[in-house]
Nucleic acid binder design. Sequence first.
DNA 1: CCGCTGACTCGCG
DNA 2: ACGCGAGCCAGCG
Length: 105
Amino acid sequence: MVRRIPRGRVSTYGRIAELTGNPGAVRAVGWALHALHGPDTGVPWHRVVNARGRISLTDESDVTLQRKLLEAEGVVFSDSGRIDLRKHGWPRPRTAQATVQGSGE
DNA sequence: CCGCTGACTCGCG
DNA sequence: ACGCGAGCCAGCG
């Protein structure tokens, strides 16, 4: 599921849990992502942040890395270090109108 | 089996 | 917007 997150977009632990059919297994998602810490697994783990648009890592050096990777994809952080999920979030919040702007993804 | 801990989230104040 | 407490799932001692 995490692999489906488009470049420059971010999702949340809760969203991933829900999309995978385990709405309650939020913490398990975090556990899973933590499990691939190390050599590159091809999973864009850095595109997952918490529901408040903030990075949820414990080690500061890792926080810096994740932020760096996201900024390299064009994700913007506010002064308080938060990401606007309405702008960079994925899946995108449904807009009331059926306006078809972008395509693909 | 019990209890604690952790890349979490939600409801309250 | 921030801090708390409670509810979550998986692992481990």
